[in-house]
């Protein structure tokens, strides 16, 4: 019976407990509210039912009462707001040393690129206990990356990167859903997240043949001829890309922006949009020439050029997230 009627979703990430706690609190609070109002209505309806010779007693209202039942809920609401905001802040702020997985969504499948080089479709392997940051983009329409057991969801947009992160806490296989309606086979755009014990995960990783993602990006960087202008030793016709990631860039129109995933990606697809000060718009656009996966590899490579060389310890860890701890989603404007 209960195999067919689960009443609570799996709880398999660091976020799940926090979200459930708020949910349970709200269930109790709102449940009590509901019951109180229903009981009052039922009691009034029964006690003051129409009887012969009994007139209703006219009451104008009471300002004190009105202010009370505006003010008290407002205070409670502010508490809920703060609680929800704290969890949200956590959900949108990936830890600095998260492992990064690039994700491309398309009608109707999920494609994942691990830093170590493994590529997967509709199945995502992650180890227990590691912070994982999904850097996601879409090839066509808006999708949404949703893993109910992790309590995370993030829309995936074409033409920009969005970010979600989690730390899986329990081994198992969990649903991965597309949660934003994306056309005919929206309900078929599903997959699974396989959470493995670290040892098994290492084993799984070693089964893969591929070169690490930044290295694949480096090869592309050479073969596409990027390296002729973007030289790493001296300033070429294009800006030097070493130590670009997460550093401020002065643009031709006077603005200064931080070079994040979105900026790097946009500058490859649309070089003229945010021209670096002092350079001419001579770079050709790569939109339609490289695929989203190749773009991810290039971005991963350019980010790897900013890797702090002194920090050898975390060898597994790929380039750090923004040091400010800011969430790393898109710049809408």
């Amino acid at each position: 019976m209960f195999a067919n009627l689960p009443l609570w979703p799996d709880r398999a990430s660091n976020m799940a407990g926090n979200v459930d706690a708020l949910f349970i609190f709200l269930l109790i609070l709102c449940g009590l509210m509901c019951v109180a109002i229903f009981i009052m209505i039922l009691v009034f309806a029964a006690k003051y039912r129409r009887r012969k010779g009994v007139e209703a007693e006219q009451i104008e209202g009471s300002t004190a009462l009105e202010l009370t039942w505006s003010g008290v809920p407002l205070l409670i609401f502010m508490g809920i707001f703060a609680w929800g905001a704290i969890i949200y802040f956590q959900e949108r702020t990936p830890p600095q040393d998260s492992a990064e997985i690039y994700t491309v969504a398309k009608q109707w499948m999920w494609k994942f690129q691990h830093m170590e080089g493994q590529r997967e479709i509709n199945e995502l392997h992650v180890p227990v206990g590691r912070d994982v940051k999904m850097i996601m983009t879409s090839q066509d329409v808006i999708h949404s990356f949703y893993v109910p057991a992790f309590r995370i969801k993030q829309d995936v947009l074409p033409g920009r990167y969005t970010v979600a992160w989690f730390r899986a806490t329990k081994a198992g296989t969990y649903h991965l859903f597309c949660a934003e309606y994306c056309g005919t086979s929206h309900s078929g755009m599903i997959g699974s997240v396989v959470v493995m014990e670290p040892a098994l995960y290492e084993q799984w990783l070693s089964g893969g043949p591929a070169a690490p993602l930044p290295q694949a990006g480096k090869q592309l960087f050479m073969s596409l001829g990027c390296s002729t202008c973007h030289r790493l030793d001296t300033q070429g016709r294009g800006p030097n890309l070493a130590n670009l990631y997460n550093h401020p860039v002065l643009l031709e129109d006077g603005r200064t922006i931080i070079a994040d995933d979105n900026y790097i990606g946009e500058s490859i697809l649309n070089p003229a949009a945010k021209l670096v000060s002092g350079f001419k718009p001579i770079m050709p656009t790569f939109q339609g020439i490289i695929s989203e996966e190749q773009l991810n590899a290039l971005v991963a490579y350019i980010k790897s050029l900013s890797q702090p060389t002194e920090g050898e310890a975390g060898s597994r860890n790929t380039p750090a997230a923004s040091p400010s701890g800011q969430p790393q989603t898109m710049q809408v404007q």
Binding site: V19, L22, F23, W83, I86, R151
Partner: peptide, 8 residues
Amino acid sequence: AALGLDVH
């Protein structure tokens, strides 16, 4: 309306 819960 609770941000962290809405995500789910």
